[in-house]
C-alpha cells in the first residue's frame, strides 16, 4: 500500500531520472501529436468555420420576390446572437433540457454504478450475459430505436399499456407532462449500460489484493465498496457525468423521434433540435448563421454547467 501511494505521488519518472526537460516534452508530444492533428482536422477546423458563420448571414441582394436567385454571405456582427437570444424557444428548450438532466443524469449514473458494483461483486461469477445485455441497447441503431419507442409508447399499440390497461392504469407517454419522462427513459435505456461498462472497466482495473488487505484488516464488504471501489471509479464517474451534462444540453434524437408523432413539440423542443432545423431551413430563425449562433450559445451554457459541476465536485472531494 505504501509503495502504491508513493508511486502515485512520486511524480513522473523523467524528472528524477535526469533526462532533459525538452526530451520529455518531445516524447510527450510524440504521443499527443497523432490525436492533436486529427482533432484539429475534424473538430477545430469545422468549429472555426462554424464560429465564423455565426457572424455572417446569407442575404439576397438581387431584389424581387426571390432575391434574384443569389445569396451573398454578409457580415452581420452579433445580429445572429441577438436574434437567437431573443427567441423564446431557445430559452424554453434550455429550461427543458436542464429539467431533464436534473433527474435523468443522477438516475442513469446511479443505475450504471449500481449495476457495475453488483457485477463486480463476489456474487456473480459469470457476468458475460449481463454485460452484453445491459450494453445491447447502445448497439441498436437510432433509426430502429425510433421505431421501437414510437411503438412502445403508442397510445394504441403500446405493449406496456396492454398490461397496465388490464389493471386499469394505462400511461399516456405522449402527454405534455409526461414527455420528458418518456424521453428520459429512452436515454437511460440507451446509455445506462454504456456508462456501466466504463465503471466496470474501472472497477476491474483495481488490484484484487487491495480487497484482500482490507478484509484482513477486518473491513466489511460495504466498507470495501465505500472506501476502495467508489473512490477508484470516481474519476470515471466524474467524466461520465460531465459527458452526460454536455449530451443532455445537446439532446436531439429523443425529441426528434417523439416529435414525429407529436407535432405540438414543434421543431424547437430542445436547443439542438432548433439548431439542426435552423441549419436545414425548417425552423425560424433559419440558416447556417443562426444555427451556429444557437450552437455556440449551447456550448457556452454546457461549458458553464460542466465547469460548475467539476468545481463543486472538487470542493466536495476535499
Amino acid at each position: 500500500m505504501a509503495a502504491r501511494d508513493r508511486r502515485a505521488r512520486g511524480g513522473r519518472g523523467f524528472g528524477r531520472r535526469g533526462f532533459g526537460r525538452s526530451h520529455e516534452a518531445r516524447t510527450g508530444w510524440m504521443f499527443l501529436s497523432p490525436f492533436v492533428l486529427l482533432f484539429a482536422l475534424c473538430f477545430l477546423a469545422p468549429i472555426v468555420v462554424s464560429v465564423r458563420a455565426a457572424f455572417h448571414r446569407d442575404l439576397p441582394t438581387g431584389g424581387g420576390l426571390y432575391g434574384g436567385g443569389e445569396l451573398v454571405e454578409t457580415f452581420v456582427g452579433v445580429e445572429n446572437f441577438a436574434q437567437v437570444l431573443a427567441t423564446p424557444a431557445l430559452w424554453a428548450g434550455l429550461g427543458r433540457v436542464v429539467l431533464f438532466g436534473i433527474f435523468q443524469i443522477p438516475v442513469m449514473i446511479g443505475l450504471a454504478l449500481l449495476l457495475a458494483l453488483l457485477l463486480d461483486s463476489e456474487v456473480v461469477r459469470r457476468v458475460t450475459v449481463f454485460r452484453l445485455g445491459f450494453f445491447l441497447p447502445f448497439a441498436i441503431p437510432g433509426v430502429i430505436a425510433a421505431l421501437l419507442w414510437t411503438y412502445i409508447y403508442s397510445p394504441r399499440l403500446s405493449p406496456i399499456n396492454q398490461v397496465l390497461g388490464a389493471v386499469g392504469a394505462p400511461i399516456d407517454f405522449f402527454h405534455p407532462q409526461m414527455i420528458l419522462v418518456s424521453m428520459a427513459n429512452m436515454t437511460t435505456w440507451t446509455f445506462a449500460g454504456y456508462n456501466m461498462l466504463i465503471f466496470l472497466a474501472a472497477l476491474q482495473a483495481i488490484p484484487r489484493e487491495l480487497y484482500e488487505a482490507a478484509r484482513i484488516d477486518g473491513a466489511s464488504e460495504a466498507r470495501i465498496v465505500w472506501a476502495i471501489k467508489i473512490p477508484m471509479v470516481a474519476p470515471a464517474a466524474l467524466l461520465a457525468v460531465l459527458l452526460s451534462i454536455i449530451g443532455t444540453i445537446q439532446l436531439f434524437n429523443e425529441p426528434t423521434v417523439l416529435a414525429t408523432v407529436n407535432p405540438w413539440m414543434g421543431n424547437d423542443f430542445t436547443p439542438m433540435v432548433l439548431a439542426y432545423n435552423a441549419m436545414t431551413g425548417q425552423a425560424q430563425p433559419s440558416g447556417a448563421g443562426p444555427a451556429s449562433a444557437v450552437s455556440i450559445v449551447m456550448a457556452v451554457f454546457a461549458g458553464v454547467l460542466a465547469a460548475g459541476y467539476a468545481l463543486a465536485q472538487r470542493r466536495l472531494a476535499r
Binding site: 426571390y66 432575391g67 407529436n262 407535432p263 405540438w264 413539440m265 414543434g266 421543431n267 424547437d268 432545423n277 431551413g281 425548417q282 425552423a283 425560424q284 433559419s286
Partner: peptide, 20 residues
Amino acid sequence: IPTYPAIGAEMAAAADRAGS
C-alpha cells in the same frame, strides 16, 4: 414562398392544438 419549409412545424403544432 421561398421560406415555406420553415413554417411547417409551427402550423403542425397549431393543428395539434386545434385537434385537441
